[in-house]
Write a protein that binds this DNA or RNA. Structure first.
Lengths: 263, 263
DNA sequence: GCTGTCTACTCGTCTAGAGGAGTTGAGCAA
DNA sequence: TTGCTCAACTCCTCTAGACGAGTAGACAGC
């Protein structure tokens, strides 16, 4: 039976460390030392109860601790498993360079295919709405001013990995393909450049936090998985902010990579 | 009594949503709507038991859910409180520019003082050890090769916010102040440049995950707070990697900011 | 004024049990 | 072979209670 071979730990009754923490320590160590590999099943609650001679809640507390650390995931009716490590997608700092855009594909699609993964976009919505305060500040529009809001969700190989919401000043978007669900070849950055707003630079602000319930639902995030929040502001050659993109990315699916000059 | 005014929610017995989740939903909504502000005390377990007419474990499950979401923190003997939002430190992408270094201070010290916070560095250790695999790869040294390892912990206003470990090829560090606990004015980058390794660029790889137990201990992280892991490689003008700095930062204390050219 | 104690209140840990619901595989029936 | 039922096993939800330990305020005694 999977996982049984790790049932070797002994409780230390003299320790002032809580019993459930001692059990969690045993299991954690088994995972970190590789006695349990990603995807392996932990001993069932019943087996752990028998082995350590403790009540059910004590075992569950131990497992709960590992869950919040992101080390294991439980599946109702099946068991508790060491969390498999997903493929990590590397986002390079040149991913919005114009040369990539010229190929006629939006950044996400182009680089995903290059990495050998199957990209998909769904839940595309285009509306007009008041800009949230922090977005309005970045776009240099009045708080509450109506802007065009484009939101969508990206998936890789069937797994949702990222939600993104773009905010564009209304006068830059109205009457263009930016208002369509499909913004056309090269994405909205290509459309903005066609309008004469040649892009010069982007500023990305990166945060990390635990997902909201809504985000966990959209990105299929279990407990113990944080998200990146990435707010990117696009500036044209006149220094005007022409778009702000607010992205929430599954923290275990991404590695961000940036290049900094030493000046 | 603090928090009592939010005791207004009603359970929906017809709902198939678990009772403890309904209670968590009520409390979460109270926090998000501002009926409970950062620092406010939630109703005690006893009050919630009375109000919802449920068992203690049910209430504790609800609170546990909010804890793993990072919304509340519990304090033994005092109560459960809405997590106060700490001051966020913004790391700009030019923070390692030479002009900052010339002022004679290491990056962390200089920018913290500029932001009006009191910086501190402790737990400084300098040793020689084998480079971990991913570090060796970045440094372009043989796996397991001995390098100089400098680790330290940074605090702001008394709160530890970041641990950092630098790896420097041994032949670049031996016989220099880099081996000392105090690397001198301008930090180790200044020392490397004095050795003729003029820095040209940095590459930063950014990850997010939940902290290990050790990291949570060093950074005083409660449940529900993720960390940034930031691995920075410094390249000199010859394209040689002269240092790799592996940093773990409290996720709620930092905002990273990068500038990307559109090319 | 200071100190130590006492008490009420708080969350932490643990036990012992009940019923429910999702998953899986064996075995049987069509 | 295919499809169904059923039992065993899994984790999920919830109850009811016990004892422990940290906190904070009231209060008596010095």
């Amino acid at each position: 039976m999977a996982g049984d071979e790790i049932l070797v730990g002994q409780l230390d009754p003299a320790s002032d460390r809580a019993v459930f923490r001692q059990i969690a320590d045993h299991l954690r160590e088994a995972i970190e030392r590789g006695r349990l590999s990603p995807g392996d099943k932990l001993p069932s609650e019943a087996k752990l109860m028998d082995h350590y001679a403790v009540a059910r809640m004590t075992v569950r507390n131990a497992i709960q601790e590992l869950q919040t650390e992101g080390l294991v995931v439980s599946e109702h009716g099946r068991g508790v498993f060491v969390r498999p490590r997903p493929q990590v997608k590397r986002l390079a700092s040149d991913r919005f360079a114009r040369r990539h855009r010229k190929e006629g594909k939006a950044a996400f699609i182009a680089e995903s295919e290059a990495a050998g993964a199957a990209p998909a976009v769904d839940m595309i919505q285009v509306t007009e709405a008041a800009a949230p305060a922090d977005i309005a500040e970045r776009l240099k529009v009045a708080p509450g001013e109506v802007v065009v809001v484009r939101s969508r969700r990206y998936s890789l190989d069937g797994r949702p990995v990222e939600t993104a919401t773009s905010y564009i000043p209304a006068e830059l978007a109205r009457g263009t393909q930016i208002m369509d669900a499909n913004p056309g070849l090269g994405g909205i950055y290509a459309r903005l450049e066609e309008q004469g707003h040649t892009l010069e630079r982007f500023v990305e602000d990166v945060f990390t936090r635990m997902p909201t319930r809504e985000e966990a639902r959209l990105l299929l995030l279990g407990p113990g998985i944080p998200v990146f929040r990435l707010v990117r502001t696009a500036f044209d050659v006149n220094g005007r902010a022409v778009e702000v993109c607010d992205t929430v990315m599954s923290g275990d699916a991404y590695q961000l990579s940036y290049e900094l000059p030493a000046h």
